[in-house]
């Protein structure tokens, strides 16, 4: 075990994977010599060469489109989009090609790959650098979407994602890249995909979160416990396909549910979770499901981001609402 923050855990996972499989290539803007602007790919080009850790021209559609071709021709690419806010240039390739090549070739071709992108806000970044775009990718039927909540999960999920036979979009919340460390085993380990993680058992309500919100939820739950409120906390780990059974089992037990997401509210993953829990648990629910999200606005310039992003107060208000209903 070593104490690692999430950047080191991801770097360690990529290093282990590249050592084990010479079909893996990393490509993207500034991923080689520079080691990525957040240093997730640090030293990998030094260790594995310019043919396997490739600094590309500045072209997101090109990076993702080429990765699709590389994957069709037997490599396992791990492209990086430098910030998820710039993934939209590549969106056509994600939606129309990456997601559908297996179906449109009758299962004779597929394009397993892991598209990494730093995501989400809270670090006072410039415009377009703080987006949480997971719902767009979830709507591209045929893609697995993962967002880790900390260093331990990041390494295990990354190693499992690389083994996946389907394309994966791996979103890395920047705010927790270096904000805390966890014990991370030095050797390889995988965390099961498509499975949510019950981080804490509880009885009064179910709180569902993912990405950087999981840390915020944990801090809030500490406060709530002082008020004798017992929260069952579930982190999704894999956002899609959704592990609805783990969620609905918990809600059937606690009979109350709050979903905390950093992305904006409407037509989002929280909307979908709310709908599916209603379909399965409505007769057990004792209060309307509450969603704690960012407002339905373009991400503001960072001077106002703390008013935009979910915070403890917003979560506690939702908790109060379901408990007092």
């Amino acid at each position: 075990m070593t104490k690692m923050h999430m950047v080191s855990a991801l770097n360690n996972a990529l290093d282990i994977a590249m050592k084990a499989d010479d079909k893996i290539v990393i490509l993207g803007e500034d991923v080689g010599v520079d080691g990525g602007v957040f240093r997730v790919t640090e030293n990998l080009q030094k260790n594995y060469g310019e043919q396997r850790v490739i600094d590309t021209p500045l072209a997101e559609a090109g990076i993702v489109g080429c990765s699709i071709g590389m994957s069709l021709n037997g490599l396992k690419p791990i492209p990086e989009i430098q910030f998820s806010g710039f993934s939209y240039q590549a969106f056509h390739h994600i939606k129309q090609h990456m997601a559908r090549i297996r179906q449109r070739t009758n299962n004779t071709m597929s394009c397993p790959m892991v598209l990494r992108a730093p995501c989400s806000g809270g670090i006072r970044a410039l415009e377009h650098h703080s987006e949480s775009p997971e719902s767009f990718f979830i709507h591209c039927q045929g893609i697995r979407v993962i967002m880790p909540a900390g260093p331990y999960d990041a390494k295990g999920l990354m190693l499992a994602a690389i083994k996946s036979e389907d394309p994966v979009i791996f979103l890395e919340p920047k705010k927790i890249y270096r904000s805390f460390k966890e014990d991370v085993p030095e050797e390889a380990y995988e965390i099961e995909l498509d499975k949510a993680n019950v981080r804490k058992q509880g009885t009064d309500l179910t709180m569902i979160s993912w990405g950087a919100m999981t840390r915020l939820c944990e801090e809030t739950i500490e406060d709530l416990e002082k008020e004798n409120i017992s929260v069952e906390h579930i982190d999704l780990r894999t956002l899609w396909p959704l592990d609805i059974n783990t969620l609905s089992n918990s809600v059937n037990k606690t009979k109350k549910c709050i979903i905390v997401q950093e992305a904006t509210k409407s037509c989002s993953l929280s909307s979908e979770i709310s709908a599916q829990i209603n379909e399965r648990c409505v007769l057990n629910l004792e209060a309307p499901i509450q969603r704690v999200t960012s407002w339905d606005l373009p991400f503001p310039q960072f001077a106002l981001e703390n008013y935009f992003l979910p915070n403890k107060t917003r979560i506690k208000n939702a908790v109060k609402k379901v408990l007092e209903f």
Binding site: Q51, P77, H92
Partner: peptide, 24 residues
């Protein structure tokens, strides 16, 4: 590859395919 209907997008997939041949 199967036919590709979105105009031009196949150019970049082909580039990736050629790139993989070069790397391998």
């Amino acid at each position: 590859l199967p036919i590709s209907i979105p105009i031009g997008s196949q150019c970049i997939h082909a580039t990736g395919i050629a790139w993989a041949s070069q790397i391998k």
